[in-house]
Simulated assay, not measured.
Amino acid sequence: MSRINITPRFVLDFIVGRYYGQVEVVTKDIGATIGTEILSENGVRICSYRPGTRHPDRAQEIAEEHLREALEMLVGGSLVHAPGLPVGEAVAVALRHATAAEQKWTPGDL
């Protein structure tokens, strides 16, 4: 018999100027909290953390708040990125800054 594994996923679409992008939010129940992973549209992990909630839908809302904060850092100029850095990479850097205060989590560790 094959093992079946279902992972809930949530996608956030965003627009910065003329750039359209998306990030994927993956949540996992890891005991006393929900582990949250934010992935690029290519499936590369941008950041992972424990948002301090037991509810996956609230963890998704928190991820949306972090994305909004990251985009505001870029558009508002409070986070200056290197010239020539693709917008998707700049968003990833800003997301890492936006989630810096969260408790870190390494997927696979419980």
Score class of each variant (00 low, 15 high):
Arg3Pro: 01
Ile4Ser: 11
Ile4Lys: 11
Ile6Val: 12
Pro8His: 06
Pro8Thr: 07
Arg9Pro: 00
Arg9Cys: 12
Val11Arg: 15
Val11Ser: 10
Val11Gly: 01
Leu12Pro: 00
Leu12Lys: 14
Phe14Cys: 09
Val16Arg: 11
Val16Cys: 03
Gly17Tyr: 05
Gly17Phe: 04
Arg18Asn: 09
Arg18Trp: 00
Tyr19Asp: 08
Tyr19Asn: 05
Tyr20Trp: 09
Tyr20His: 11
Tyr20Glu: 12
Val23Glu: 02
Val23Gly: 03
Val23Ala: 07
Lys28Arg: 15
Asp29Gly: 10
Ile30Arg: 12
Ile30Thr: 13
Gly31Ala: 09
Thr33Val: 14
Ile34Gln: 06
Ile34Glu: 00
Ile34Asn: 05
Gly35Phe: 05
Gly35Ala: 08
Thr36Tyr: 01
Glu37Leu: 03
Ser40Cys: 08
Glu41Arg: 13
Glu41Lys: 13
Asn42Asp: 14
Gly43Lys: 08
Gly43Trp: 05
Val44Trp: 05
Arg45Lys: 14
Ile46Ala: 06
Ile46Gln: 02
Cys47Ile: 14
Cys47Asp: 10
Ser48Glu: 03
Ser48Asn: 03
Ser48Thr: 04
Pro51Met: 09
Pro51Lys: 13
Thr53Trp: 12
His55Asp: 13
His55Tyr: 09
Pro56Arg: 01
Asp57Ile: 01
Asp57Ala: 06
Arg58Val: 12
Gln60Trp: 00
Glu61Val: 09
Glu61Met: 11
Glu61Asp: 10
Ile62Gly: 01
Ala63His: 00
Glu64Ser: 14
Glu65Arg: 14
Arg68Asp: 14
Glu72Lys: 14
Met73Asn: 04
Val75Pro: 00
Gly76Val: 01
Gly76Glu: 03
Gly77Phe: 05
Gly77Gln: 06
Gly77Tyr: 04
Gly77Trp: 04
Gly77Thr: 08
Ser78Pro: 08
Ser78Lys: 12
Ser78Asn: 10
Leu79Asp: 04
Val80Gly: 06
His81Ser: 10
Ala82Arg: 14
Gly84Trp: 11
Leu85Gly: 05
Glu89Leu: 06
Glu89Cys: 03
Ala90Gln: 06
Val91Ser: 02
Val91Cys: 02
Leu95Tyr: 07
Leu95Pro: 02
His97Phe: 07
Ala98Asp: 00
Ala98Trp: 00
Ala98Glu: 00
Thr99Arg: 08
Thr99Glu: 09
Ala100Pro: 00
Ala101Ile: 07
Gln103Thr: 14
Lys104Asn: 13
Trp105Arg: 10
Thr106Tyr: 01
Thr106Asn: 08
Gly108Asn: 04
Asp109Tyr: 11
Asp109Cys: 12
Leu110Val: 06
